[in-house]
């Protein structure tokens, strides 16, 4: 299961590539990556590029830095550079995501750090939405002028810079030693790929050429999670869509997600989901709308939405205010 990376199907300017580490996002000359999707889930990951998400409809939970935040329709969230984050659909959720290339700081400045949650119907959110909408309209113009687009992007960053200064700060995942950071990034990338294997923390430490305790401390320092917590969370996130699908026996799901046995899955779910996997599965089955939709949700984790439809949804919600 890949992290939440989607391609703007409308534009041929996009360029998203996956390279070695957790997630590297590349950009065209506009230094902006913008896409919309109906979200199922997106497991913990991080990237240097900060992102702004806008909830087009429904609700989702966002886990960032070991806290869980519910985002409702019209809410925005800004996730600063290198913050580990995970997304999970709560109810028929669709998202517009803007990712800002670090190049927008021209090597001399970093983009706004930290995390911000902007609730719908607050003056700040209205400002941000309005600016996002302008930007989206520009992007959708077939021959959008380069400087106009850049100006729009920077206007948005101006707003974010102002606001983040006023938000309670979560320390960004700033590893002092870039070599150490790289080691943990590689470890995270490895977990994201190999979680289904019987991984142990000792194995991971060995791979990083670090002692068990040093590795654990460093992992926590860099990612905000202990390696065992992170591994369990990745496995839980992998198990969730399988549980929703109803097709796969629960014991097979535990195995596919890399849990040595169902008891490990039970413990991980209690910790990261608050309910047992059995209860989790039934909660979704009991949601009739979701159940009627399950074919789509299981076939693609996140269904791309055309930016033009995102624009329509956004326009409707602005008009409603």
């Amino acid at each position: 299961m890949q992290p939440f990376r989607l391609v703007n199907a409308q534009s041929d300017k996009q360029a998203v590539a996956f390279a070695g580490t957790c997630e590297v996002i590349t950009y065209d000359s506009a230094q902006l990556n913008i896409f919309a999707a109906e979200l199922s889930h997106c497991q913990p990951h991080w990237h240097e590029a900060p992102e702004l998400v806008y909830v087009l409809k429904g609700a989702l939970s966002l886990t960032v830095h070991q806290q869980e935040v519910t985002l409702n329709t019209g809410d925005l969230a800004y996730i600063g550079p290198d913050l580990i984050h995970a997304l999970e659909n709560q109810h028929q959720c669709a998202l517009l995501t803007l990712q800002f290339s670090p190049q927008l700081g021209h090597d001399t400045h970093t983009l706004p750090a930290g995390f911000g949650h902007f609730r719908a119907d607050t003056p700040v959110a209205r400002q941000l939405v309005s600016q996002c909408f302008t930007l989206l309209e520009r992007v959708l113009q077939p021959d959008a002028a380069f400087f106009a687009l850049q100006a729009c992007t920077y206007s948005l960053l101006v707003l974010l810079e102002e606001q983040l200064g006023q938000q309670p700060q979560i320390p960004a995942g700033t590893a002092t030693d870039s070599r150490e950071e790289m080691v943990i990034r590689q470890s995270i990338a490895y977990i994201n790929e190999a979680f289904a294997e019987p991984l142990t923390i000792a194995d991971l430490a060995d791979r990083a050429y670090l002692s068990y305790s040093h590795f654990s401390r460093l992992f926590k320092k860099v990612s905000g999670y202990s390696p065992s917590d992170y591994l369990a969370m990745v496995r839980v996130n992998h198990a969730k869509p399988l549980l929703k699908s109803m097709q796969v026996p629960i014991t097979d799901i535990a195995e596919r997600a890399g849990f040595a046995e169902h008891r490990a899955m039970l413990a991980a779910f209690k910790k990261y989901c608050g309910v047992t996997p059995t209860e989790y599965r039934k909660q979704y089955y009991a949601d009739f709308e979701w159940r009627a939709d399950d074919e789509r949700v299981t076939s693609t984790p996140n269904k791309p939405l055309a930016l033009s439809s995102a624009r329509k949804m956004m326009q409707a919600s602005i008009l409603n205010q």
Partner: peptide, 25 residues
């Protein structure tokens, strides 16, 4: 059905940490 209790899922839920459960069709 509005909700469905699958026997395997419920056995696992009730067994909790007390027993190891395997399944095959």
């Amino acid at each position: 059905p509005s909700i469905l209790d699958r026997p395997l899922d419920e056995i696992i839920d009730v067994a909790g940490d007390a027993a190891d459960v395997t399944y095959s069709a």
